[in-house]
Nucleic acid binder design. Sequence first.
DNA 1: TTGATAGGCAAGCGGTGACTTGCCTATGCT
DNA 2: AGCATAGGCAAGTCACCGCTTGCCTATCAA
Lengths: 99, 99
Amino acid sequence: MESEAELFRALSDRTRRLILDELVERRRQTLFEICGRLATRHGLTSTRQAVSQHLDVLESAGLVRSRREGRYRFFELDTNPLRAIAERWPCRDATEEDR
Amino acid sequence: MESEAELFRALSDRTRRLILDELVERRRQTLFEICGRLATRHGLTSTRQAVSQHLDVLESAGLVRSRREGRYRFFELDTNPLRAIAERWPCRDATEEDR
DNA sequence: TTGATAGGCAAGCGGTGACTTGCCTATGCT
DNA sequence: AGCATAGGCAAGTCACCGCTTGCCTATCAA
């Protein structure tokens, strides 16, 4: 899939955005940690598999990187793709001109 | 709907992103103009109604404003919501720390 | 070695989103 | 007035996405 499409599609889901929020507050979380924080702090009832699939989407969009260590797999945020968004469409918008 | 959700959902569709591209290149286009440019420049075969629905989504997300003049309705881009995206998730990401 | 913990794979289901189709309204031109 | 142009409304279709369910693999601790 086109990489830009993957980025925007990944961001279009609320649960995935909450996952990014959690990874900002606490880096290097495992799948189970993320599940727990989504449940206790946001009242999400998603199963582990659902969260795992969300993390796959985020990873292939470049927003998250993961690394295996023993029986744990740690996830961490990468905000680099986000910075490109604002620059994708130039800032020459209407508010600067005809008001 | 939550405004943030509307913004990201609007951006998640390729045709809608192409519409934003066209509105950057040429401001204040009508629905028919946008249809024409999508067809000739990107090979899109979308009907007028499809494009109209996309413009509704973009407008309710705050990315586009429209204004009626006579029998024409002009659309123009508003990039303000885009600038908030990069600031939503802080830049304290992994690349600055453990590499 | 056995059990518990952490995670993966894949098929199936339901809802939503993108799109079409058909018809209707409004404005402008001659 | 009458026709063409520009656009709106609403219902229906189809595919994809998020999620569940069930089962399997791998690592660690006792």
